[in-house]
Design a binder for these strands. Sequence first.
DNA 1: TACATTGTGCATGCACAACATACACAATTT
DNA 2: AAATTGTGTATGTTGTGCATGCACAATGTA
Lengths: 121, 121
Amino acid sequence: MNVSISNTSEKPIYQQLFEQISAQILKGELESGYCLPPIRQAALELRVSVITVKKAWEELERSGLINTVTGKGCFVAEFSSDEKLRIRNDMILKQMESDTAYYKSFGLTLDEVIELLKKNY
Amino acid sequence: MNVSISNTSEKPIYQQLFEQISAQILKGELESGYCLPPIRQAALELRVSVITVKKAWEELERSGLINTVTGKGCFVAEFSSDEKLRIRNDMILKQMESDTAYYKSFGLTLDEVIELLKKNY
DNA sequence: TACATTGTGCATGCACAACATACACAATTT
DNA sequence: AAATTGTGTATGTTGTGCATGCACAATGTA
């Protein structure tokens, strides 16, 4: 469990959790079959409610990233590297769509965006 | 009033309004001194509540983009092109910071991000 | 079976978005 | 001046989503 949550962030806690665990799975930091910590333990560790953790785990389940077994635990799903890459790109593209919409609304060109990115990445 | 709002968007209506009007002012589409439509008329036109419009106008006021005069109306503030550009860049940079944080969390390099941008902008 | 550990379901509190309505102030008309 | 119209403002209500605690069900182990 290598995650850090911010209570001041505008993003809901469960979403921060979901995003960080997702990234770790898709980057390969958490291997297939790995058992996530029990929601109670995670909740204790992160100082949030069990339900908040559960909600994040639910999102992971719905995205097909983990398999939940009542009474046993939550395990990172099995999928190929290709599949992993596809899911990662889907997530990133979905995010990028809304990002670019914002930039476009201010009249930015592609080159301007790239210029700003180079300065701030 | 050339704005379009989506009731299904995850973003609050007042924020959609704020972002679109902001962009129009900073792009120069709405000139200094221009009088925004009365909140009642805008509300009627957009089929939302007066209060939703007011909230968006309040954000504009707080950002220094308009001046509100009770009984008269809301007017686009006076500022130089330089100032306009500065505000625009501030808004975009603030957004880009959180965007890039997301990309980085998935382990994307700057080049990968630029590649994706070129494909989808 | 008995018990501990795991995830699940339900009811609550709180904050915020959106709404309808009524109010207060300024400009105009009479 | 007083009344009317047009403007933004304030109050109170409703619905939705985040976060919570506690009791329940399913699984594994002694």
